[in-house]
Structure formats: structure tokens, C-alpha cells
């Protein structure tokens, strides 16, 4: 299952539509980290609303992606983590340290906008 990546203004948005096989997740992360450079995006939003499980593997993969995105000069935010999934992630002992999270897509965009503003770069392209 391929995850479509949309570009909206200065942001890349990847909305995961259903449970992902390991390879698909890895492929998505590869695609995002190359595209963030190519498209000179300032932010990446990964929407995980449709994920009913986030285990050790998927969490690690997303955390690594966040690190790469940051190294490329952009911000990543994960949006849409379900309450039950959040509990499971925490109880497994996983830490999403260094990864920003927001309630949903709208909040994710607001978060990235806020970041851009506070770092005084908002004069750069948005839409």
C-alpha cells in the first residue's frame, strides 16, 4: 500500500490510510526524506489517524525519520495518534523524544506555522 504525499504550501503531508506493512512504512520514510530536500519543504506532517497499532518498530522508524528531517532543516510533526494507541506506546516503554505531536492535521499545520513564525522565517513561501 502506497501512502500518497501531498505538498501544501511549504509542507509535505503524508496521510497513512490503513495499517501499514513494515516495508511500506520504510518506503514512506525514504520518500519523505528525499522529497523534503527536493521540494525544500519547511515541514513534514505524518498523519497516523488510521494506525491502530504503533509498535516498537514503527515508532523507531518514525523517530528516525524525524531526526533525518531535522538534519535537512525542516520540522516534522506526527498528528492523529489515537488515545488507545498513545497509551499502548507509553506502556510499551517507547519514548517519542524529540518528535513533535499534534491532535490532527489542522493542529499540525498550526503548529508548523507557529514554529515558522517564531523562528522569524514566515516571510518565506506559504501557499
Amino acid at each position: 500500500m502506497q501512502v500518497p504525499i501531498l505538498k501544501q504550501g511549504a509542507y509535505l503531508i503524508a496521510s497513512i490510510q490503513s495499517a501499514l506493512e513494515d516495508d511500506d512504512l520504510v518506503r514512506l520514510c525514504d520518500a519523505l526524506s528525499t522529497q523534503v530536500g527536493k521540494s525544500r519543504a519547511r515541514g513534514v506532517i505524518v498523519d497516523v489517524t488510521a494506525l491502530d497499532v504503533m509498535d516498537s518498530f514503527s515508532t523507531r522508524t518514525l523517530v528516525e525519520l524525524a531526526t533525518i528531517i531535522r538534519l535537512r532543516g525542516a520540522e516534522m510533526v506526527i498528528v492523529g495518534i489515537q488515545p488507545e494507541v498513545a497509551v499502548a506506546v507509553v506502556r510499551l516503554g517507547l519514548k517519542l523524544e524529540g518528535v513533535s505531536t499534534a491532535l490532527d492535521l489542522e493542529e499540525g499545520i498550526a503548529y508548523l506555522d507557529g514554529k515558522a513564525r517564531s523562528s522569524g522565517k514566515e516571510k518565506n513561501d506559504r501557499g
Binding site: D22, D52, V53, D55, Q82, P83, E84, V87, A88, L92
Partner: peptide, 17 residues
């Protein structure tokens, strides 16, 4: 309960992987 359903699914995910 919803949370426990997710915990069961998560445990299976770890073990199967």
C-alpha cells in the same frame, strides 16, 4: 475495553515481528 484491545494487538505485533 478499547485500550486493552489495542494492547493485545500491539503485543501480537511485537511477537510476530
Amino acid at each position: 475495553a478499547a485500550t486493552d484491545c489495542t494492547l493485545v494487538a500491539t503485543a501480537i505485533s511485537e511477537l510476530a515481528r
